[in-house]
């Protein structure tokens, strides 16, 4: 099963592999959310939504529904 950012535990790291939707917002890419870059789950709000991430050194928060479409490989 492919993992996505939603599957990360707090403090866990992963590498972005691909997107499962055509409509990934350009803004997210510009903030550094690109295949090959590292992502860390910093904090979650109640109900694990939104997610506070560190992507490629940029700190940002996105909603679960967007995070579901970002496929990753979880790093040990």
């Amino acid at each position: 099963m492919t993992k996505t950012i939603v599957d990360l535990k707090r403090g866990q790291r992963g590498i972005i592999k691909s997107f499962s939707t055509e409509n990934i917002p350009l803004k997210l890419l510009e903030m550094g959310c690109l295949p090959g870059n590292e992502v860390v789950l910093v904090q979650t709000a109640p109900f694990r939504d939104p997610l506070y991430l560190n992507i490629n050194g940029s700190h940002l928060a996105i909603r679960k529904e967007t995070a579901m479409h970002i496929e990753i490989e979880i790093l040990p």
């Binding site: 409509n23 917002p25 803004k27 997210l28 903030m31 910093v42 939104p50 506070y52 940029s58 700190h59 940002l60 928060a61 996105i62 909603r63 529904e65 967007t66």
Partner: peptide, 11 residues
């Protein structure tokens, strides 16, 4: 709506 949401968490 095409809901998406990105916010920077500045230092």
């Amino acid at each position: 709506s095409k809901s998406y949401f990105v916010i920077e968490m500045p230092n």
